[in-house]
Amino acid sequence: MRNSSRLQPSHIKIATCEPRIVARILIAIALFYLALFLGLPLFAVFYEALGKGWELYLEALRDPDAGSAIELTLIAAAIAVPANLIFGVAAAWAIAKFEFRGKNLLITLIDLPFAVSPVVSGMIYVLLFGAQGWLGPWLQEHDIKLIFAVPGIVLVTIFVTFPFIARELIPLMQAQGKDEEEAAVSLGASGWQTFWRITVPNIKWGLLYGVILCNARAMGEFGAVSVVSGHIRGMTNTVPLHVEILYNEYNFVAAFSVASLLALLALITLLAKSIVEYRVRKDSQTIPHGETE
């Protein structure tokens, strides 16, 4: 690894290295900035949550409202992630394995939800399904409640996490090409056999990576969900919304206690992400791409 030789003993001067003192200063700046903006807040969440003792911490988590918030968050993620998983695989299959007109436009459109403010994401569903919305009167007639109810929360969660899995899979499957699939078909495999036995094993890490990121966002989304939820305690509160309510009631210990669950989720996400990245790097090291010997 060339990186390891970058820091040279001070008496040796290498033309492609900075002087040792410059390197030290740069490292110090980077670490200070990261400690200030990432390390300190992360530490603060857990400190505030546990600072007044385990008793209060567990009490905040045992609150039935907290329980129902956790339940709702899990439900929303359990619907949004599989839905976007199926979509991501279908979109990537069409885009990576076939040539057709308008492909680039389609890729841009898939990325669209990332460009939309969370608040606007929630609002467009209110405009569609809200009491004064397009379909509002019709929905009321049939006694269907989407906005300020669980279905609305699930819908906006799907919207804000829409691109995650697709955008992981599209470049991956494009890079892998369709040679292996064509080989499978020429050996007599059917479409589904090719998909399950060749494509899925090849994209499993990318898939998992997308699922991890998608899930983190699905469970943590605040702005969009806040707009459509109506903040009904014990009914339409997700975990992030519950944190907001507790904080606004100046119940800081409880707020940070519940927040610490989400911070824990973030740490697990980062860990899982790192593991997948490590596995992918290991796999790609054993498979040389240039095949000349």
């Binding site: 969370p118 983190a216 992030p240 919304l241 989400l262 911070a263 973030a266």
Partner: peptide, 8 residues
């Protein structure tokens, strides 16, 4: 910051 919910 990608992983931590914004409310937190």
């Amino acid at each position: 910051p990608f992983a931590l919910p914004t409310a937190v």
